Amino acid sequence: MNAFRAAVVTFPGSNCDRDMVVALEKVTGQAPVRVWHGDADLPEKIDFIGLPGGFSYGDYLRSGAMAARSPVMRAVVDAADRGVPVLGICNGFQVLTEAGLLPGALMRNATQHFICRTVSLKVENNRSLFTSGYEAGQVIRIPVAHHDGNYFADEDTLDWLEGEGRVAFRYCETTNGSRRDIAGILNERGNVLGMMPHPERAVEPELGGTDGRALFESAMKGLIEAA
């Protein structure tokens, strides 16, 4: 792999797309391609796709529901099916569940309030493309900022996720009502990660911490080694 080529999708209402672009460029040394939600195709030879946080389409209907049906999402689903890594953060996680790339749903926080603070996460699975830079059981500090971050799935689905090691991150303390304190999950293939916390906001000391940097470094390293 000569260069790490990432794409970051922007939906109407996205407000963390620039954050993800800056984080990816700082970690990889390559400026990501910006992709608009109305584009029917992704650029060729994309190695990584980022779905950022925000309030796509104003969170009408359900958070992420309208964005999941944007023209570009057909290309994102096709790319994920081919094995291209896809990272959905916060609203991006909501879009991934609405698009059927991840199971479950994100509901209103149990507190009924917007939550904006730095939380402790436990790394449950460090064997994925996104998490290999962490130690199993490592506790990291990552910011959250969401109103609909309460992860829900039925008991059978939760047992299935746990049994297959697809819970990537778990809140160390009760945060938003998420079932089993789940903060991030992987798809079966391990190339799609959805998480509510914002690792892109924790890649520089100036931002208050660097615990999110290893996630992006892990993905880049994994892709280079696989090339």
Rank of each mutant, 00 (worst) to 15 (best):
R5N: 15
A6F: 13
A6Y: 01
A6V: 11
S14D: 15
C16Q: 06
D17C: 13
L24V: 15
V27Y: 05
T28E: 07
Q30T: 11
A31F: 07
R34I: 10
R34N: 10
W36Q: 13
G38R: 11
D41M: 05
I46A: 05
I49E: 09
P52G: 13
G53D: 09
G53T: 05
F55A: 07
F55V: 05
G58Y: 02
G58Q: 02
D59K: 02
A65H: 15
V72D: 11
M73N: 06
R74Q: 09
V77A: 07
D81H: 14
D81L: 09
R82F: 10
P85H: 02
V86M: 08
G88N: 08
C90S: 07
G92V: 01
F93T: 14
V95W: 06
L96H: 04
T97C: 12
A99V: 04
G100S: 05
P103W: 10
G104F: 01
L106A: 02
M107W: 14
A110S: 15
T111K: 03
T111E: 12
T118P: 04
S120P: 06
K122A: 08
K122R: 13
V123C: 02
E124T: 07
N125L: 02
N126E: 14
F130M: 00
G133P: 02
E135M: 08
I142T: 06
V144S: 12
H146V: 02
G149I: 01
N150R: 07
A153H: 04
D156V: 14
L158N: 00
E162G: 10
R166F: 15
V167L: 00
Y171T: 04
G177N: 06
D181A: 04
I182Q: 05
A183M: 06
G184I: 03
G190I: 03
N191T: 14
L193C: 13
G194M: 01
M195T: 14
E206S: 10
E206G: 00
T210K: 03
A214L: 05
A219P: 03
K221W: 12
I224F: 14
A227S: 11
